[in-house]
Amino acid sequence: MSAPVSSRTAPSRLRRIEPAALGAVVFREATMFRRYWRSTTFSSVVEPTIYLLAFGFGFGSLVARVAGYDYIDFVGTGIVATAVLFGSAFPGMFGTFIKRVFQKTYDAVLATPVDTEELVAAEALWIALRSGVLGVVPMLVAIAFGLQPSWGMLLVPLIGALTGFGFAAFGIWVSGIVPSIDSFGYVISAVVTPLFLVAGTFFPIDGLPGWASTAALLNPLYHCVELVRSAVFGFSLLTDLGHVAALAVFGVVMWLLAVRRLRARLVL
C-alpha cells in the first residue's frame, strides 16, 4: 500500500447553501441518469404524447375551437404542463423514497459536508431541469401536427423547470410523509390526478362551476398551462407575472416543507 492515505485538506469556507454542494449532488444524479435515461425519458414523454394525440385528435374531432384556439393548439400547449407534472412529481416521490429508504443514499450524502437544505434543493433542481427539457417534447409533437412555432416557445423549458421545481419538492415532501412506497397510490389518486385534470389543459377552467373554477386558480399546474400558452401565443405582462409569482411561491413553500420533512426523517 504505497499511496499516502491522508492529509490535511479541507474546503476553506462552508456556507449554509453552497453551489458546490448543489453541484455535487446534481453531478451524482446526472451520472446516474446516464444509466437509465432511456426508460425515464420514454415514460416521461410517451404518456403525455398519447394524451395529446388522444385528446387532440379524438376529442378534437368533436370540438374544433376552445377558448379562441384550435383544439390541437389548446391541448398541444396545455399538455406541456402534464409532462412537467409527470416528470417531476413522480421522480420526486418514488426516486427520493427509494434513495432514502432502500438505498440509504442520503445517509451517505449527509455524512459529507452537505446539509438537508442543499440535498433537497439539488434533487429538486435536477428533476426540474430534466422535466423542463422533457416537457417540451409533446409541444414538438404538436408542432408536427400543426401548432405554429414561435420564438416564445424558447421560454417553455424555463417555465417547465420553474413548475417542475415545485412539483419535485412536492414529491420529496410527500416521500417523507408516506409510511411505505405503496402509499403513493393515495397521493396520486387524490392529489396528482385532480391537479392534472383541472389545470385548463384539456378544457378551460372557466367552464367549471364557480367554486371549482376558483379552486383551480390555486392549482400550480394551471399557472404553468397559462404561462406556456402565453409564451406560445403572446404574453400578457401583468397576468403572466402573476403566474410566475404563483409558481415561485409554490416552489419555495414546497422546498421548505420538503426540507423540514426530510430532515425529520434523516436526522434522528
Binding site: 474546503p11 451520472t31 446516474m32 438505498q103 443514499t105
Partner: peptide
C-alpha cells in the same frame, strides 16, 4: 450498511464523493 451506488462504476462512485467533499 453498504450504501454505494451499485449502478455506477467504482471510479464514478469515487468521483461523486470527490465532489461532495469539495475537492
Amino acid at each position: 450498511q453498504d450504501n454505494l451506488d451499485i449502478e455506477l462504476t467504482v471510479r464514478q462512485n469515487l468521483q461523486v464523493f470527490a465532489r461532495l467533499y469539495r475537492l
